[in-house]
Design a protein around this nucleic acid. Structure first.
Length: 256
DNA sequence: ATGGTTGCTTAGCAA
């Protein structure tokens, strides 16, 4: 099974690239983030024409997550429990081929110490609590998405430059480590020691040509799936050319 | 040097 996750930064702006990506890789499951469309504007016809079913949880302008599959999905769940005031569309879960797949768009946090930063840390704690309440780590679970955290210094091309940022700050790394400690491993690190590969490069300051990347998009796997992980990689080609997303897709190949 | 780019929505915010 080939599993992919990609922050498309607007599914409308990236629709041609998404369809080409599906054709090029023929993934079985694709988790998407930052759709930036309400549900009634999700391009369902184009996705189905490409051979995929979709479940999605969107909102206007911001956020929005989806799971695309070539086989039927069941038990779709929208949103992250634990805060009735939270209307941000950042999590969707579905079962595909016996695997529980979660597509997650973690908050960015904007700047350390801001309200959005506190929301980020709280959201990550809520996700950990949700995993603990809803699942057990002996189940086959793949938590995929834009985590907006580079877990370690080897996940940044220039770690010193980024260490105090919202993407690398020790408090965000610690919250992510707690999520992993529930019972998941970083799929990329099953076979790749790094440094890199990176999955995001800022649009500004020529970050991509300068190689100033971070690895903030992840596929975290519980033990039954980690044992099946054959390889993981980033499709850097997707960051090149005209009007790319600022994120490149991460792909994982799981043995049957 | 407090910059730079993209997307959504239309001037300002979020990333």
């Amino acid at each position: 099974m080939k599993l992919a996750t990609w922050n498309v930064n607007s599914i409308r702006a990236r629709l041609d690239r998404l369809v080409a990506f599906l054709g090029r890789h023929q993934p079985d499951v694709v988790c998407l983030q930052e759709l930036k469309v309400p549900d009634d504007e999700f391009p369902i016809l184009e996705v189905e024409a490409a051979g995929y079913q979709a479940v999605f949880h969107g909102q206007r302008t911001y956020n929005g997550v989806a799971i695309l599959t070539r086989t039927p999905v069941t038990d779709v769940e929208l949103g992250l429990p634990g805060n009735d005031q939270d209307d941000q569309a950042r999590l969707i879960a579905a079962t595909i081929g016996g695997i529980r797949v979660l597509s997650a768009y973690f908050p960015n946090g904007q700047s350390v110490g801001s309200d959005k930063w506190l929301y980020k840390l709280g959201w990550m704690e809520r996700l950990r609590a949700h995993l603990e309440a809803r699942y057990t780590p002996d189940q086959p679970i793949a938590l995929c998405g834009d985590f907006n955290v580079a877990p370690e210094d080897r996940d940044a091309a220039r770690p010193d430059e980024w260490r105090e940022s919202v993407l690398c700050h020790a408090d965000a790394r610690e919250r992510l480590a707690r999520i992993a400690a529930w019972g998941m491993v970083d799929g990329m690190r099953v076979h790749e020691a790094g440094p890199g590969p990176y999955s995001w490069w800022d649009y500004r300051m020529l970050a991509f040509p300068k190689g100033n990347g971070l690895r903030i998009d992840h596929v975290y796997l519980t033990a039954p799936l980690a044992a099946r992980c054959r390889k993981a990689w980033v499709d850097r080609e997707e960051r090149k050319g005209k009007l790319p997303s600022d994120h490149a897709p991460v792909l994982v190949e799981l043995a049957p």
